[in-house]
Design a protein around this nucleic acid. Structure first.
Length: 467
RNA sequence: GUCCCCUUCGUCUAGCCCGGCCCAGGACACCGCCCUUUCACGGCGGCGACACCGGUUCAAAUCCGGUAGGGGACGCCA
């Protein structure tokens, strides 16, 4: 194990979204790549908005993606005592001070500053007050340096420098005695001995404040890597109106975890021209320095392509297991029908998602109730009747393999002077109800000769009734 | 408004640090052709970008300066 310690620290105010998942992935990847430790920490200091359901949803998403953590989950709500102690230390050392300004006053000053075009930062009213009344409610503020600069070498973005005068005395403890985010993060990352903070770049602006806190607290400052955001198709921050953002929603839409992982890792990161990465490959090749600096747009088309790829080359047995819930959802039972794994094999090259695969698999279990009229209309009834009579007559044995069936159909063609399309298509319609289906050989073998004959018979009666 | 960050095909990106191999490569999507009993898969080909303006240089996507556009942050949210 190396010294590398990284963490993913979501706040449980919603499900695990793709942006969070990618941040988690990058952390996980780097930990695995360097033999480091990946820690999961739940940032639930905002008791109001944090929910148990969200925690579960996040854990579920992480597990589905296979992003297993080495330590945790830790909950910030369990560490309130620790934060309090550190606040007191800061107060005792004069590195923090009590402030009696009310929220309303601050709000008013902020608005005024904005209006006048000034930076809306705390004006320092209580910074040097010595006459603070004991009885009044107060918050604790960090006594931040007002001169000089704070800078850090971001592993992704390079050196970033902030003039200290831009930073104000941030609140580290609220009126109700609870600590605030920026303070908790620092205390936690320090006490968990985090050596590298990999997070969304919406935190870049928090970083200088946090560095100042590390220094005030006497903690070593970790390295930072800020990963760019994921945008929607209109290049604004990805949100629900761009479609699904929840990792679990992608699972339910029939995406494979390895496909989403592969998509996410390539969003913002690259390894030359490589597109397909197994878990092991991405672990081996991942390098935080190859993460791009600019935001990227989430593109479902490419995700679909990757999903299709993983379905195509996936293990049929596993796919069958994963497919089952999507089949059941359609109120279809596989009982008494063909083996689902065999069905999967006929559909692997034809489905982009498990949902689509389930949709295409239905006909195997539910014989068609009606037929695609337009497709049927391409043949005259006499021809259809002839085909529907000729084929069952030739299907004598019960045991065929796919090439056996193909050979049989060729035979039928030669005997009757038909072209393949004149036989295959009507049979396909008889067996599946439509024209979008696997090869005839695959269907017949999967369905079995008995069921095949039954379905052709049924189609024959249907056509006969039309005459 | 202030500060911070970003800018290569429609999208994800390679190349940029260490100028010439780049009249910019790959992938998705799109279009066409081929394969084909349907739908797909697959194969081949096409379309298509260095935000802009200056500078440095024999030579710039690559270095420097500026402009524009986009994003983020500015909370007793995280």
């Amino acid at each position: 194990m190396s010294e590398l310690r990284v963490r993913f620290a979501p706040s449980p105010t919603g499900y695990l979204h793709v942006g969070g998942a990618r941040t988690a992935l990058f952390n996980w990847l780097l930990a695995r790549n360097r033999g480091g430790t990946f820690i999961l920490r739940i940032e639930d200091t905002d008791v109001e908005r944090s929910t148990k359901e969200s925690v579960n949803a996040i854990l579920e998403g992480m597990k589905w993606l296979g992003l297993e953590w080495d330590e945790g989950p830790f909950y910030q709500s369990d560490s309130f005592q620790l934060y309090k102690e550190h606040v007191q230390t800061m107060l005792d050392a004069g590195k923090a001070y009590k402030c009696c300004c009310t929220a309303a006053e601050l709000e008013a000053k902020r608005n005024l500053a904005m209006q006048e075009g000034r930076k809306p930062k705390y004006d320092g009213t209580c910074r040097d007050r010595t006459d603070l009344p004991d009885s009044q409610p107060y918050v604790v503020r960090f006594r931040a340096p007002h001169t000089g600069v704070t800078s850090f070498d971001d592993l992704i973005k390079g050196t970033i420098t902030f003039p200290n005068e831009e930073l104000d005395d941030l609140i580290i403890q609220r009126t109700d005695g609870t600590p605030t985010y920026n303070f908790c993060v620092v205390v936690d990352d320090a006490s968990m001995k985090i050596t590298m903070v990999i997070r969304g770049d919406d935190h870049v602006n928090n970083t200088p404040r946090q560095i100042q806190l590390y220094e005030a607290l006497g903690f070593p400052v970790p390295e930072f890597a800020h990963v760019p955001m994921i945008l929607g198709s209109d290049k604004t921050r990805l949100s629900k109106r761009h479609g699904a953002t929840s990792v679990i929603a992608y699972r339910d839409m029939g995406f494979l975890p390895e496909a989403l992982l592969n998509y996410l890792v390539r969003l913002g990161w690259s390894n030359g021209d490589d597109e397909i990465f197994s878990r092991d490959e991405m672990i081996k090749k991942f390098d935080i320095r190859n993460v791009g600096r600019s935001a990227s747009v989430f593109n479902t088309e490419k995700l679909l392509w990757l999903n299709a790829h993983y379905i195509k080359y996936g293990d049929p047995e596993r796919l069958a297991d994963l497919l089952l819930p999507h089949i059941s959802k359609r109120k279809v039972t596989t009982l008494g029908g063909p083996d689902l794994m065999t069905v999967v094999k006929t559909l692997q090259e034809r489905a982009q998602t498990l949902e689509e695969m389930a949709e295409r698999a239905v006909f195997y279990y539910n014989a068609p109730e009606n037929y695609d009229d337009a497709a049927l209309a391409k043949f005259d009834n006499d021809h259809l009747m002839a085909v529907f009579e000729a084929v069952p007559r030739k299907l004598t044995s019960a045991a065929y393999d796919i090439s056996g069936i193909d050979a049989l159909f060729k035979e039928i063609c030669t005997e009757n002077g038909w072209k393949m399309g004149q036989v295959g298509q009507p049979i396909r319609i008889a067996l599946s109800g439509g024209t979008q289906a696997p090869g005839i050989g695959e269907i017949v073998v999967t369905l079995g000769v008995e069921e095949t004959v039954r379905r052709i018979q049924k189609a024959r009666e249907f056509v006969a009734a039309k005459k």
